[in-house]
């Protein structure tokens, strides 16, 4: 990601309909689930133990929802800068499987400057290579107007 862009993003650069940076996470694999389990402390066996996942009627282990949310958060902070992110919400709609490539995109849906700062409302989604939506969400960034 081009980090220079986030440092320079100013309120005057943002308009409804703008698209954010496209974040592509290629070939997510079991080791990503293991790393996220270790980093987060979420050791739910559905994400890391293949026989357990299969016994629960899954074809294989699958990713933690918060791993996909972490990819979505990365797109938002690449776009606006971590200090400007005011809130975000994710809804989990489909599972992340080994071998998936995840693409996160977002769009500005509203702006409001009434309190002297620019509040930028966005909607975003993370999709897999089959265009299936894994996560949808909305976020607000607050940018200085000066």
């Amino acid at each position: 990601m081009n980090n220079e862009q986030t440092e320079r993003l100013r309120a005057s650069d943002v308009a409804v309909g703008d698209e954010g940076p496209t974040l592509v996470v290629e070939n997510v694999d079991r080791v990503d689930f293991v790393k996220y389990a270790g980093a987060s402390g979420d050791f739910n066996p559905l994400h890391v133990i293949e026989p357990y996942a299969k016994k629960a009627d899954n074809p294989s282990v699958f990713g933690q929802g918060m791993l996909t949310a972490g990819y979505a958060a990365q797109m938002l902070t690449d776009w606006f800068g971590v200090g400007n992110l005011d809130r975000f919400k994710t809804r989990f709609t489909a599972k992340l499987w080994p071998g998936d490539t995840v693409t996160v995109t977002g769009e500005v849906v509203d702006t409001d400057e009434s309190d002297g700062n620019m509040h930028v409302d966005t909607e975003f989604a993370a999709r897999n290579q089959d265009d299936e939506t894994l996560v949808t969400g909305d976020a607000t960034a607050v940018l200085p107007t000066e």
Binding site: M1, V25, Y36, A39, G70, Y71, T77
Partner: peptide, 13 residues
Amino acid sequence: REFVTAVRDENPV
């Protein structure tokens, strides 16, 4: 660093 590595976030911040 461990957490951002796990979510493959390379942002230097």
